[in-house]
Nucleic acid binder design. Structure first.
Lengths: 107, 107
DNA sequence: GAAACATTCAACCTTATGGTTGAATACTGA
DNA sequence: TCAGTATTCAACCATAAGGTTGAATGTTTC
């Protein structure tokens, strides 16, 4: 199981619309920083910072490709988040029992 | 689907060890504020603030019972979190396919 | 009704967060 | 080599977050 500090980073990273938006934009492949920044009404620098937080949390990884930084998803953080949730959420609501499957199949 | 602001509150609430700890403590039933505060190395007031954030995010609800505030889990926030994750996580990692079950069965 | 208890409110402090702008770094192409 | 492009770094600012302490509110008990 992830440490508390890791989970703080993971859930903290999800707690901002811009960062969730970036993750959604990365669902179907990698993108550059400029491409990721385009839809967001803020400076490129601000998006760059959000990317750094996603990277630190383990949601994305970066490949430097010439002068482009290519950003792609990294399953680590999402797995950590789901593992925490799949452990605690089932006690709360019946409709979540399907999560047990995930919890028991992935160590 | 939840609004962006709601998800900010939901994931933001999970981004702190103390608050996750409180949720874990509530898995098997309700507790009072004092009971919830006991394990945490901080003032009662600090825990009271964390509870308020969990309440605002929809993770817990409160019943005032005499001079006690009885805190119990509320599935709303956890459902919102899982719904977001179940929608975006499956694109990332094969081991999460079981989440689809949840997504498709719960509207 | 006074004392003790359970909890929140208010004010305050420190640090983190989210944004800005301007400069720096590093690659690309003529 | 020089201009342009992609990106980060650094400094700064305003606001939010997380903690503290002390006072206030409401409840129970005697």
């Amino acid at each position: 199981m992830s440490t508390a500090k890791e989970l703080d980073l993971v859930f903290g990273a999800l707690g901002h619309e811009t960062r969730r938006g970036i993750l959604e934009d990365l669902r179907h492949g990698s993108k550059t920083v400029l491409e990721l920044a385009a839809p967001h009404p803020m400076s490129l620098n601000a998006v760059s910072k959000h990317l750094k937080r996603l990277e630190t949390a383990g949601f994305v990884r970066r490949t430097v490709d010439g002068s482009f930084h290519r950003i792609e998803t990294d399953p680590r953080a999402m797995k950590a988040a789901l593992k925490w949730m799949s452990f605690y959420a089932p006690f709360w609501t019946d409709s979540l029992t399907s999560l047990k499957t995930f919890r028991e199949s992935d160590t």
